[in-house]
Simulated scan of single mutants.
Amino acid sequence: MTETWREEAERLRASAPRHVLFLCVANSARSQLAEGIARARAPAGVRISSAGSQPGTLNPFAVKALAEVGIDSSGQFSKSVSEIPAGDVDAVITLCAEEVCPAWLGKATRLHWGLPDPAAAGATDAERLQAFRQVRDELRRRLAVVFPQPDASLVHIEVASPGDLPAIRALLERLHLPAADVSGAGQTFFVARSGDELVGAVALERHGEDALLRSLAVAPRLQSTGLGKALYLQALAEAGRTGTRALYLLTTTAAPWFEEAGFRRIDRASAPAVVAGSEEFRALCPASAVCMELVIGG
Rank of each mutant, 00 (worst) to 15 (best):
G75M: 00
L216D: 03
Q54W: 06
R13Y: 02
R11E: 09
L204T: 11
T253M: 09
L165F: 09
A201N: 05
A34K: 04
K229Y: 01
L227W: 00
S161F: 09
Y232E: 03
H19E: 01
E259M: 11
F281E: 05
Q234L: 05
E173Y: 03
S73I: 10
V63D: 03
R41K: 14
P102W: 02
P162Y: 03
A271Y: 00
E138M: 08
H112R: 12
V274N: 13
R245S: 14
A103C: 12
G114N: 06
L212N: 08
P118E: 00
E68S: 15
R141A: 15
R11Y: 06
D210L: 10
K79N: 04
W257I: 13
E259D: 11
A29W: 00
I71P: 03
P116M: 05
V145C: 07
D151Y: 11
G195P: 15
G75S: 09
A42R: 02
A219H: 14
S28L: 08
G52D: 01
S15T: 12
G243Q: 04
G75T: 06
S28G: 15
E99F: 03
A271D: 02
A97Y: 01
P17F: 02
T244L: 05
W113K: 11
G36A: 12
A144S: 14
S80A: 14
A235E: 01
Q32L: 04
A185E: 15
D90F: 03
R265C: 13
P220V: 11
P60S: 10
G240I: 07
A34T: 06
P256K: 11
A255T: 08
E197T: 15
L227F: 02
V100C: 06
A269C: 02
K107E: 03
R30C: 01
A29V: 10
A283V: 13
D164M: 12
C101G: 12
S73F: 07
A192M: 08
P85L: 04
L143Q: 00
R268M: 07
V274E: 15
L105W: 01
T57F: 01
A185S: 15
L58D: 00
R268L: 05
F132Y: 07
I93R: 02
A170I: 09
P272I: 06
A179T: 10
G277F: 05
V100K: 13
W5V: 13
G226R: 07
D210P: 12
G228V: 10
V274A: 15
L213Y: 04
G75N: 09
A121Y: 03
F281S: 15
S224F: 06
A269H: 04
A91P: 14
G243L: 07
A144R: 04
A230V: 12
E205T: 12
E35H: 07
R39Y: 00
E209T: 14
S74F: 04
P162I: 12
G262L: 08
C101D: 10
V295A: 13
S49A: 13
Q149H: 10
L175D: 04
K107Q: 10
R41N: 01
